[in-house]
Computed example of a mutant assay.
Amino acid sequence: MRRLLVLVAALSLTACSQAPATQEAGQAAAPQAGFPVTIENCGRKLTFDKPPAKVVTGYHPSLETLLALGLGDRIAGRTNFSESPFLPGQKDQYAKIPEISDTIMPPQKEIMLAQGADFVLDNAMAGFDAAGGYATVEELDSAGSPVYILGGWCSPEEVLQFTIDDTFTDLRDLGAIFGVPDRADTLISDLRGRLADVKKRVEGRTPVKVLATDGGKGPINAYGGSGITNQMIALAGGVNVLADVKGDYTEVSVEKISAAQPEAVLVSDYATLRGEDMPSSPAKAADAFAIARNSPAAEKQRYLALPVAAQHPGYRNILAITDIARFLHPDAFTQ
């Protein structure tokens, strides 16, 4: 089971929650251009009469995505990931935002509700599970803190159905919610340009056989033929040696890994959670090489430490495709 934010418990969303209704017409302030805005997320309709001004973000990719849209001044609280590798220019912005949780998860229910946020952004449902002591999506909606889940990661099934286009949908939605559609369009255009550049560079080249792993000595935690990591590999000019394995993050037998003969290995890097039970990326790579000891990847000790934040929905996963492509096809980036 994924150690980070892949859903530890699926939260059933049977009711159609909605952000608080507008005030009586006679009391309402003059409407802002482009508002109200209604967005659908996780089967719920969220209506905004004005751009959110007091935002709480969860795991790293949610904060990164808002910062990429130039919305750092709207973020009133964030979780902790101080050891995580930051994207250029973002660490200083992170440091200025109040920390409301000393882990990557949202704070417990009472603290979360006390924030008085008018928008909550995260990329998994795990942080809204009542069994974990967290405020639920419905409770936050009722408190005037509507929740948006990036990538449509609203259930285990939807995690598997994720496509890179869902990231562009999120950017468009956030551009509309915050009244900055032009910024969103500019960012989307830039990211699509990056993807097009990678496609042009790797086109016609023999795909590199890739094993994506999160470590283990047997069975090994690895990424199968569904979900975000599998797509990043394909878009970067690789082919997932576990493409026939059902699921995204799953356990795979030693025999399967040994027979896969990968030419390169991607290792999930948890910079924020190192400890006795969290081996380093070199250690994970060494375990993979020991299992696939006769593979081309093992012979060349060829691996890339991939920040696990890139394996969750958000702005970074598209940037990571270029990094993976450079790793798999370095000669395609010499000019």
Rank of each mutant, 00 (worst) to 15 (best):
C154P: 07
T103S: 11
L171E: 10
F128D: 01
Y134R: 13
E157N: 03
F168I: 04
V159W: 04
G144M: 09
Y148M: 14
F162W: 03
T136R: 14
I104Y: 01
P156H: 14
K109F: 05
F178N: 00
T163Q: 08
L171G: 04
F168L: 10
Q108V: 04
L171C: 02
A130M: 00
D166E: 12
G144Q: 01
I177W: 01
I104S: 04
D118I: 00
E138R: 15
G116Q: 06
G151C: 07
C154N: 09
F119S: 14
P156R: 12
S155I: 12
D170E: 10
T136Y: 07
G116H: 11
S155N: 15
D166S: 15
D166C: 11
D141P: 00
S142C: 15
G127F: 01
E110Y: 02
S155C: 13
T163W: 01
Y148W: 11
F162S: 01
A114E: 01
V137E: 00
N123V: 03
A124G: 14
D173N: 15
P156L: 11
V147R: 00
G144K: 03
F119P: 05
I149H: 05
A114P: 10
D118W: 03
Y148T: 06
D165P: 07
F178Y: 15
V137C: 03
L140W: 05
I164T: 15
A135Y: 00
A131L: 05
E157W: 04
T169Q: 13
A131W: 00
T169S: 08
L160S: 08
L171A: 12
L160F: 14
N123F: 08
M125T: 13
A143H: 08
D129C: 09
D166R: 13
I111R: 13
D166I: 02
S145Q: 08
Y134S: 14
G179H: 10
A126K: 11
I111C: 02
E158A: 14
M105D: 05
F128P: 05
V147F: 00
R172L: 10
T167Q: 13
D165Y: 07
V120F: 05
L150Y: 03
S142H: 02
F128W: 00
A135S: 08
C154V: 06
M112A: 13
D166T: 06
M125I: 11
N123L: 01
V120T: 07
Q161S: 02
A176G: 03
F128V: 00
E138G: 10
V120S: 01
A117F: 11
M105Q: 08
M112W: 00
C154E: 05
F168G: 05
A176E: 08
V147P: 03
I111K: 15
G175Q: 03
G116N: 09
F168W: 08
G175D: 03
Q115E: 14
L150S: 07
D129Y: 05
D165T: 11
P156G: 13
D173C: 06
V147Y: 01
G179Y: 00
F162H: 02
E138Y: 12
F168T: 13
W153P: 04
T167V: 07
T136K: 09
S142Q: 10
S142I: 09
A114D: 15
E139K: 11
S142Y: 00
A124K: 09
Y134H: 15
T169P: 07
I149D: 09
D165G: 04
A176N: 15
